[in-house]
Simulated assay, not measured.
Amino acid sequence: MGFSNGVNERQRRLGEELRRVRDAAGHSASEVGEALGVKGPNVSHIEAGRIGLTLERLNTWLDLCEVTDAEYRAGLTSMSESTGKGWWTEFKRHVTRSALDLAEAEATATALDNYESLLIPGLLQTKAYSEVIQGYNDTKVEFRHERHKVLTGNNAPPYRAVIHEAALHMMYGGPTVMRDQLNHLIEMSQLPNVTIQILPFDCTTYASNDTPFLLIRGAHARLDTVLLEHPHGSDFIGDPEVVTTFDRKFDRLRGLALPPLSAATSAPSPAQRDSLGLIQHIRYKVQGR
Rank of each mutant, 00 (worst) to 15 (best):
A219M: 08
A221F: 04
S189A: 14
S44K: 11
R73M: 07
E47N: 10
G288N: 14
E16Q: 12
S28R: 03
L276S: 15
Q287V: 05
A271F: 04
I282C: 14
M1R: 09
K140H: 08
S4M: 09
A25V: 01
R97F: 02
E146P: 00
N5S: 11
F213D: 06
A156P: 08
Q190W: 01
L124H: 05
Q197W: 03
S234Y: 00
R12K: 14
F213N: 10
N114T: 08
V67W: 00
T89G: 04
M171E: 08
C65I: 03
V141L: 10
K92M: 05
L151E: 14
F236S: 13
L276Q: 15
S189R: 00
G233V: 02
L215V: 12
L256W: 05
G174L: 11
H230D: 12
T244V: 07
G153A: 13
L215N: 03
T244C: 08
D101V: 05
D239Y: 01
I216T: 13
A161N: 14
A257S: 15
I279N: 10
T152K: 11
Q190T: 04
E16K: 05
A167G: 09
D274A: 00
F236G: 08
A99I: 02
S4W: 01
G26S: 15
E66I: 03
L64V: 04
T83N: 13
A29R: 15
D239A: 12
K39G: 10
P121C: 13
T108F: 02
E17N: 10
M171A: 09
G26T: 08
L58A: 10
I198F: 01
H45T: 11
H27A: 07
G173F: 04
E16V: 06
F250S: 09
L253E: 10
H184A: 09
P240K: 08
L123T: 03
I196G: 13
Y284E: 15
S28W: 02
L58G: 12
S269M: 09
G174W: 00
G255S: 13
R144H: 07
A35K: 06
T195Y: 03
